[in-house]
Every structure is written in structure tokens, then in C-alpha cells.
Amino acid sequence: MSELTHFNEQGRAKMVDVSGKQETVRTAIAKSSILVNERIYQQISEGSNKKGDVFAVAQVAGIMAAKQTSSIIPMCHPLALTGINIQFEWNIDPNTAHYEVLILAEVKTKGLTGVEMEALTAASVAALTIYDMCKAVGKEMIIGPTMLMNKTGGKNGDFTRQQD
């Protein structure tokens, strides 16, 4: 079992000291989703939502969120991110009126610690922004699940989520 490094000698939380780590290129891809009704799907697809281009706003919100992760997650290190990309894809089953937006957030850096939290934050905030922009049309939207799909770099090596 590995030693927990998030606690000080008094058993209180601390930010981990990463100064002894090797700087490497690190990437992370997180996925989230939001289930919407047919009317919301139509508005997003047609660009007729009264608040504007839903995916454009959600994309900018996700990028901004990734850059601010250390401001809202207490033990996250501030990182100089080198790239953030957010993509949206529809998963539609017309037989069940299933309209799901899949959100993929990829974050990159060259640094001492990973960007998993930044990718997860970006995907989550993009989903929350879609909810916010569409809630006047229907509040029954369902967000999630949100999960880390892939990460590269660092002492612990690479991770790829196994598909169910």
C-alpha cells in the first residue's frame, strides 16, 4: 500500500510537494454527458436557443474551468496548461427518444503533476453550462456519468479506462 501524501504530520490535509517529480508531458481525457429532451436537441441542433450557441458557450466555459481548477479544488496545483480541447457528439436513439450529448475534454501540460482534475472539471462544467443554457426549455436533463477515460505521463504511468 502506498503512503498517503496528502496529510501532514498532524494528520491535516496539505498540498502535495511535487518539487521532486520529473517534468513530463502529461495529458488527460475526461468524458461526461447530458441527457436532454427532443425539444432541447432541436434547439441546440438548429441554433435556436434564445441564450445563443449552446455548444460554443459550453466549450468556452469548459476551457475556462480547466484553467481555474486549482481555484475551486483545494489541493490541486496551479498548472500552466499547454492545450485544452472540448468536443461534443450526439448519441441519439430515435426509438427511445434518447438524446444524449457526449462531452470529451482533453487537457495537456508539460509539468510536474497530472491534468486529470482539469479534464474532469472541463467536462463537468461544459455539461453544467449546457444545463444552464437549456433549463428554461426543460429541467429534467440528467448530467453524467463523468469519468477519466485516459491519462498519460507521470510516475504512475498511463491509464486507459476499460470499456464495459
Rank of each mutant, 00 (worst) to 15 (best):
residue 36 V to N: 01
residue 114 G to D: 14
residue 100 E to R: 02
residue 33 S to F: 06
residue 9 E to I: 01
residue 59 Q to A: 07
residue 35 L to H: 10
residue 155 K to L: 11
residue 39 R to P: 08
residue 77 H to Q: 05
residue 100 E to A: 00
residue 61 A to R: 02
residue 93 D to A: 13
residue 96 T to M: 09
residue 31 K to H: 13
residue 127 A to L: 05
residue 59 Q to D: 11
residue 159 F to G: 06
residue 68 Q to T: 12
residue 78 P to S: 05
residue 10 Q to R: 04
residue 2 S to N: 13
residue 39 R to N: 15
residue 14 K to A: 09
residue 76 C to A: 07
residue 58 A to N: 12
residue 18 V to T: 08
residue 60 V to M: 10
residue 86 I to P: 09
residue 22 Q to N: 11
residue 89 E to R: 00
residue 107 V to H: 01
residue 72 I to L: 13
residue 50 K to P: 13
residue 62 G to N: 10
residue 66 A to E: 12
residue 109 T to L: 09
residue 95 N to K: 03
residue 53 D to Y: 04
residue 28 A to Y: 01
residue 49 N to Y: 03
residue 78 P to C: 05
residue 48 S to H: 04
residue 7 F to H: 02
residue 153 G to A: 15
residue 2 S to C: 13
residue 116 E to T: 10
residue 91 N to H: 12
residue 148 L to I: 11
residue 132 D to W: 02
residue 102 L to N: 04
residue 151 K to W: 15
residue 75 M to Y: 05
residue 94 P to W: 01
residue 48 S to W: 12
residue 154 G to R: 03
residue 80 A to Y: 06
residue 69 T to H: 08
residue 50 K to H: 13
residue 130 I to Q: 02
residue 86 I to D: 15
residue 64 M to L: 15
residue 27 T to F: 05
residue 5 T to W: 11
residue 53 D to H: 03
residue 152 T to S: 06
residue 163 Q to N: 02
residue 11 G to S: 05
residue 32 S to D: 14
residue 134 C to K: 02
residue 151 K to I: 14
residue 49 N to M: 06
residue 12 R to H: 14
residue 135 K to F: 06
residue 113 T to L: 10
residue 14 K to I: 15
residue 57 V to Q: 11
residue 118 E to V: 03
residue 77 H to Y: 13
residue 17 D to R: 00
residue 81 L to K: 03
residue 47 G to I: 04
residue 117 M to A: 03
residue 30 A to N: 03
residue 123 A to D: 15
residue 9 E to Q: 08
residue 47 G to M: 08
residue 117 M to R: 01
residue 1 M to Y: 07
residue 3 E to R: 00
residue 100 E to M: 08
residue 36 V to Y: 04
residue 71 S to H: 10
residue 43 Q to M: 07
residue 144 G to W: 03
residue 32 S to A: 14
residue 103 I to H: 06
residue 100 E to V: 02
residue 35 L to K: 02
residue 142 I to A: 00
residue 8 N to R: 00
residue 93 D to R: 09
residue 100 E to I: 00
residue 22 Q to G: 13
residue 32 S to I: 14
residue 10 Q to C: 09
residue 127 A to W: 06
residue 162 Q to E: 15
residue 11 G to H: 01
residue 29 I to S: 01
residue 17 D to H: 00
residue 114 G to Q: 07
residue 45 S to F: 11
residue 41 Y to C: 07
residue 57 V to P: 14
residue 136 A to M: 09
residue 118 E to L: 01
residue 151 K to M: 13
residue 38 E to N: 03
residue 44 I to P: 00
residue 55 F to Y: 04
residue 87 Q to V: 13
residue 70 S to Y: 07
residue 43 Q to W: 03
residue 102 L to Q: 05
